[in-house]
Design a protein around this nucleic acid. Sequence first.
DNA 1: ACACCCAGTGTCCGACGGACACACAAGTAT
DNA 2: ATACTTGTGTGTCCGTCGGACACTGGGTGT
Lengths: 236, 236
Amino acid sequence: MASDDQGVDLLWGARDKPARPPRLALTVDRIAAAAIEVADAEGMASVSMQQVAARLDVTKMALYRHVASKAELVAVMIESAVGEPPDLGAVPGGWRPRLVAWSDLMREAWRRHPWLPAATTGERMTGPREVGWTESAVAALDGTGLDGGERMDAVFLLSGHIRNTQSGATAGTQPWTAEKQLRTILHEHQDRFPALHEAARSTNGAPRDNGWTFGLDRILDGIEVLIERRRAGTTG
Amino acid sequence: MASDDQGVDLLWGARDKPARPPRLALTVDRIAAAAIEVADAEGMASVSMQQVAARLDVTKMALYRHVASKAELVAVMIESAVGEPPDLGAVPGGWRPRLVAWSDLMREAWRRHPWLPAATTGERMTGPREVGWTESAVAALDGTGLDGGERMDAVFLLSGHIRNTQSGATAGTQPWTAEKQLRTILHEHQDRFPALHEAARSTNGAPRDNGWTFGLDRILDGIEVLIERRRAGTTG
DNA sequence: ACACCCAGTGTCCGACGGACACACAAGTAT
DNA sequence: ATACTTGTGTGTCCGTCGGACACTGGGTGT
């Protein structure tokens, strides 16, 4: 902390610069940073006005001088946590490697903040950085022959897949991710769910990644099919 | 209150039909039905123990005689709302029409209960009907040459896309769905988001469906590519 | 007649988001 | 110097949430 340095200054000199504000001024950025710390450490459910305020040694109502509501606080958290959107201009190889790079970057950002997938669902405000990420991905599809709506749908499809596979939030959504008890249930009711039972049995030992790689490859293959079809002149 | 009527009945007649249970017995099914009514009408946010109890003319604590917690109530709601999983055996044309039919049915069930997408995220209990829906979709991929893990990943991909595109819950996730104000923001900052601006401009007037059709076609195309590749004997 | 059982009630708790009035400092105008 | 404003954090209060716990009143089995 810089306050120690300040203390030395106060003792040995610079006495004339009298009372530097003893506590850091409360700002939106400091509030967002504290909220992100709470969310990273204890999950989105623990992000309450009082928890965040406590981390700043401040009353919860003090926060309302800087954010209008909890929703706004969350919006600021998101905008801060997603980080600057990437510039994919330097990625060689066309749209597909570009989208792969974009996905990896987005996944990495979301991995650092596991609460992001959950926080970015539902009606809410959208900030410029978030739009910037979308811009970046849509730009990666420039020159593919897809029209604007298709490019945006493709990005939506891809980012939705990232959210779905990312970090536990929606990971429990599908039965086979609850591993232990579900595996036993599936075993007990194998007569009722024969296809699932057989699928669980015949899964080769490949490391599970929540369907991330599989889905990414399928989505990109599907987009590629469409692009090729367009390039070949077929309207379908 | 019906107690007044009962009082009259008790005074003036029908004395022999003594005390028909004056209120319907509280059961898990009635509780779940009431909760679903609340959720359908006013959204998942309005589903509180007191709201549900009020609809049944009962104290909230009475509900706890039948469900252990709110999470369990929600689990029962889901299990009841998803309905019986479909039998796709009669759908002709192989795996692809089968998955399309499955998707349509699932979408329809979720359209009837717009809170389902939001309620089925996160760690939670999974009921037999929900597993049954998955079973149904995985079974549709029998005989495609995909291994068990791939079949399950494919179903996860598809159902994730349904959730993402369904009914407003995550619909606001992507910037262009917030339509009005975003369109103006995009217009004001067109220098900052040129690709998005150009995409919004060049979108042909096709009716927007939140990317549902586009994503479905891409996903199925992508799966088809993999199946064909397997059939051709390539290991990739 | 009796005790037992148990579904539903009443009351209480801590945590939540938020409204509102206040305290208290730092300018700024007089 | 003195008053007025302005901006920032505090204290108190409210309604709602999920849930614990003790109670009660109407059956039923003996």
